[in-house]
């Protein structure tokens, strides 16, 4: 059976993150529209008052407070005990979810490869800023073996994890997201990289994520062959996931109609996302990752 746009061999052999890209990414920072509570000190200010050097406020002493933070100068002047409060510097949870359904294996480079590159790039930005980076596959498994990484030195682990990640058998997106939500309770930024080609629909899955009160970015990856299919003749189209068959006789009218359907599908996804505070970005695999990160995602506020 012919395959629509089989991947080029060498596209798989390319390094996931090139040195030039890494150099570019080091200067960037992940931005959260919400301030979350982290577990460890990170390089960003937290909502919590903490132990940094930056003064935040005073409050009355109550029994049990750490005596080290009592402002003795104030006690001398006013004869009252006040506690000095400092801004707490916290780390950030940065989750990346990669759609690993077989449909991601199309395109040139494949959407899957593209997703891994993107996840790697964003993950590296997080590592540089001492965020808590976790990249997971949407495979629906209860026990994820994805490591939680911090620090620039974890880059090799990140790359190793991404390279070991494989496109697996199909689990519906909803199931996979549900499993992710059960496994991970931390709050932070979540980037979902998918082609949204799930016949059961993507809406339910996104609703689960929204319920987690995460800062969600949806990156919709499509291959050029899906955007502008170059096919001819009378064809039997076979779905690579469920072996569903669609018979078509290609004509200009059909192609035009397909493009209309695709446009309305994208519009629907954008609309659904924006209503729920999800930042939606559609990209083609033809668009390079560094361009996507440095330009499009910066515009949308994910990085700065």
């Amino acid at each position: 059976m012919a395959k629509l746009a089989p991947p080029k061999k060498n596209s798989q052999d390319e390094p996931l993150l090139s040195p030039a890209l890494l150099a570019q990414l080091e200067r960037m920072e992940l931005v959260s529209r919400k301030i979350f509570r982290g577990r460890m000190k990170g390089e960003r200010r937290s909502k919590r008052k903490g132990q940094s050097v930056e003064f935040a406020d005073f409050r009355n002493y109550v029994a049990g407070d750490d005596l080290r933070f009592i402002d003795w100068n104030m006690y001398a002047r006013l004869d009252k005990l006040f506690l000095k409060l400092f801004m707490e510097e916290e780390d950030l949870h940065f989750y990346t979810l990669i759609d690993v359904s077989p449909s991601m294996q199309f395109g040139n480079p494949t959407k899957f490869q593209y997703a891994k590159q993107l996840a790697g790039a964003l993950g590296y930005i997080g590592l540089c800023r001492a965020d808590r980076v976790k990249i997971e596959a949407l495979d629906g498994s209860r026990n994820s073996n994805a490591p939680t990484l911090r620090g620039r030195s974890s880059l090799w682990q990140l790359v190793d994890h991404l390279e070991r990640m494989e496109s697996q058998s199909t689990v519906s997106m909803t199931e996979a997201v549900k499993a992710f939500c059960l496994r991970n309770t931390g709050k932070g930024i979540l980037v979902l990289i998918t082609d949204l080609m799930d016949k059961s629909g993507y809406e339910e899955a996104l609703k689960y994520l929204v319920a987690r009160d995460l800062d969600i970015y949806l990156i919709h990856v499509l291959s050029q062959e899906e955007i502008d299919p170059d096919i001819n003749g009378d064809l039997k189209l076979v779905d690579c996931e469920d072996q569903d068959i669609a018979e078509i006789s290609v004509s200009k009218r059909l192609i035009d109609r397909y493009k209309q359907t695709l446009a309305s599908f994208i519009e629907q996804a954008r609309d659904f996302s924006s209503r729920r505070g999800i930042v939606y970005t559609m990209t083609s695999t033809e668009r390079s990752v560094d361009r996507l990160v440095s330009r499009y995602l910066r515009q949308r506020g994910l990085v700065r």
Partner: peptide, 12 residues
């Protein structure tokens, strides 16, 4: 018809 594998027949 000639069979062709596609990512998804959803849109088609």
């Amino acid at each position: 018809r000639v069979p062709v594998e596609v990512p998804s027949t959803y849109l088609w």
